[in-house]
Design a protein around this nucleic acid. Structure first.
Lengths: 227, 227
DNA sequence: GGAGGTCGGTATACGACGTAAACCTTAGAG
DNA sequence: CTCTAAGGTTTACGTCGTATACCGACCTCC
């Protein structure tokens, strides 16, 4: 027998930062961020809550850790290839990943914006894609922030309005019924539109995304011709 | 004496939802959201913490209340006037208000997005400004969401990166020093740019805002000419 | 002008949370 | 066989939101 497994029962796998973070991520996916508690996570890992502190500095550390894990799932654009489709792909991937782990949005946004290695890699690849796509340093700067903010914003908005298509219509209808509709004619129109077309979704996300990408392209070109 | 003031000392002003919410807002401004606690707020209002529950259903109710107060500070665009400058004004006002109450951003985003009357009024006025500006229902829908998300996104980003200009440069420099810079060339360039130009600010906000407004205008016009 | 009801505030208490500190257990090294 | 230290447990503290019971002052109505 090798040195790690021995005598009686199970193979003695003694936890680790890795396993704690992975467990926390799954726990959050399963039960939501609010239910992610040190004692609860401990139990899920078959251990007393305090044991986690042997692998994690404190709860904030743990949260930062799982945010970075999530960010690591994002598909990155490759600097050098066709910039627009690369950024588009990366943006859609970000959107998907954040919707897959709704709680991560919230953390990303309230916890300083995610400052782990996965975030750095993502930033670098987006910036690089713009630069290699012919954008000046300044335009790259602006473009990056606009895209970044937009993506996080939509993900956040979508996530904090967690309704399925039918629920949505139902809720909207009861809302319209007991509402000072006369004072909010345009809001009523807007809600009605939502009743017909459903919730915010990928389509709405892509609308703004393409708007931004096209605008950035136009700016790049007009800067190049010296306008 | 009138009926409200009497005998011994002070004039008997018995709290109210209004005063509780206003007090909570000031408390959050002064000490941050994390320090806003029922007992703490009670003390600030010269009252035991439990007294607040006579005016507020629970803490969530209180938080929703103060978010709506903040939203009420926002200057609204007027449907009918020149749409672009109106929306621009409203967006800048939103930005300012959210920076004035940084904690509100966070609440706005985690607490279902603010669903009180102030939010409704704001939504209605933005939607109305677009419609009266000649946008179709569909384009209004998209334009609204894009603008809305962008504004909240930038405010959130700015707020969660709470550095002054000099701090910023300093932090960035130490960051660059102990950083695997070789693996993140574009990120390094980006940070250097930030060192020179300072933090995210109103300028960066306006860049994306104008980008969006111009793009929307273009879409409106091309839809009008049937392209 | 008392009696009673209600409104606004207090006192006390409970369970959950993050986490500090001390302790125990085991397994490998000398 | 002992020493050590890493990994896990126990116990405890302070803080949070809040349920519940209580209490005093006012208003109303007979």
């Amino acid at each position: 027998m090798s040195k790690s497994a021995q005598s009686g029962g199970q193979p003695r796998v003694p936890l680790s930062r890795e396993r704690v973070l992975r467990g926390a991520l799954e726990f959050a996916d399963a039960h939501g961020l609010a239910s992610l508690t040190m004692r609860g996570l401990g139990e899920a890992l078959g251990v007393e809550g305090m044991a986690l502190y042997k692998h994690v500095a404190n709860k904030d550390d743990l949260l930062e850790g799982i945010v970075d894990l999530v960010l690591g799932e994002i598909e990155l654009p490759s600097p050098g290839k066709e910039w627009k489709s690369e950024l588009r792909r990366g943006a859609l991937s970000t959107f998907e990943v954040l919707l897959r782990h709704p709680w991560a949005c919230q953390l990303l946004v309230t916890g300083g914006g995610g400052s782990g290695p996965a975030r750095w890699r993502q930033m670098d690849s987006i910036l690089g894609t713009l630069r290699k796509g012919g954008f000046s340093v300044e335009l790259t700067h602006h473009g990056f922030h606009v895209l970044d903010v937009y993506i996080q914003g939509v993900a956040l908005g979508t996530v904090s309005f967690p309704l399925q298509k039918e629920e949505m219509a139902e809720v909207a209808e009861t809302f319209l019924r007991e509402f000072p509709a006369a004072d909010h004619p345009y809001l009523v129109e807007h809600i009605s539109y939502h009743i017909d077309t459903g919730v915010l979704g990928e389509g709405d996300f892509e609308f703004g995304l393409d708007l931004l990408l096209d605008s950035l392209e136009r700016l790049r070109d007009s800067a190049a011709t010296g306008t």
